[in-house]
């Protein structure tokens, strides 16, 4: 494992911790899209099916369990927790799941490495992860005044994706035949979705001000 991959995983972990911190200690999920969180839960559930069949490393297994556990508990908190759920911006978070899930599934049926249940679900999880942030970005755009933790959360998620791209570039040059178009293109699309957010995030840092997206 190279430094970019490790840094990417740790950034991903940090994003989840920031979100749990917000939900668990402040008891608020204001500005957080339940739709995005549910899509991530589906992403991890379909991608980590190999937990039961392939052992890669203790690190890999532990991280998978953490991402699975945290994504489902975040969904539980927003839906079921008696205090947290009151802060959920239900009326603003209107993105429809099937607009995202259905095209990803169809695409996975067409483009995959092998036509087996696991491979199709694996491709599906990559396509879905690429666009799962969309409901969250739409919600940010609508709320406009974004609190610090929500801003950090989205920034860390974007940074995790950018580091994964560096990881693939590194692997491409150090491992023979490391060419994986499905992973690369969906990963690139996913990272590009953050470009706009990054722009305003760095602007707000430069001006030492609050993160605010234009209407």
């Amino acid at each position: 494992m190279n430094i970019f991959r490790l840094a990417g995983d740790l950034t991903h972990l940090a994003s989840v911790l920031v979100l749990l911190l917000k939900i668990h200690t402040i008891k608020s999920c204001a500005g957080i899209s339940l739709k995005t969180q549910e899509l991530y839960a589906i992403v991890f559930a379909t991608r980590y099916l190999d937990l039961f069949t392939t052992y890669i490393s203790l690190y890999n297994t532990l991280m998978k369990l953490i991402f699975l556990g945290s994504s489902f508990s975040i969904v539980w908190y927003i839906r079921k927790h008696k205090i947290v759920r009151r802060s959920y911006d239900k009326d603003q978070d209107t993105f429809r799941h099937y607009f995202i899930v259905l095209p990803c599934f169809v695409l996975a049926l067409i483009i995959h490495e092998k036509f087996t249940v696991r491979e199709v679900l694996w491709a599906f999880s990559l396509y879905l992860e690429a666009v799962a942030i969309l409901p969250q970005l739409v919600l940010l755009q609508r709320t406009r005044n974004i609190d610090n933790l929500t801003g950090q959360y989205v920034f860390l998620l974007g940074a995790y994706r950018a580091l994964y791209i560096l990881n693939w570039i590194y692997r491409y040059f150090t491992e023979p035949h490391f060419v994986h178009w499905i992973t690369w293109i969906s990963g690139l699309v996913q990272t590009l979705l953050y470009a706009d957010f990054f722009y305003y995030y760095f602007q707000s840092m430069k001006n030492n001000g609050k993160l605010q997206l234009p209407a």
């Binding site: 991903h12 190999d50 392939t54 692997r171 023979p176 490391f178």
Partner: peptide, 10 residues
């Protein structure tokens, strides 16, 4: 080094 699949990633 041998070629691996990105399935060892998360």
């Amino acid at each position: 080094k041998t070629s691996k699949s990105p399935k060892d990633e998360l």
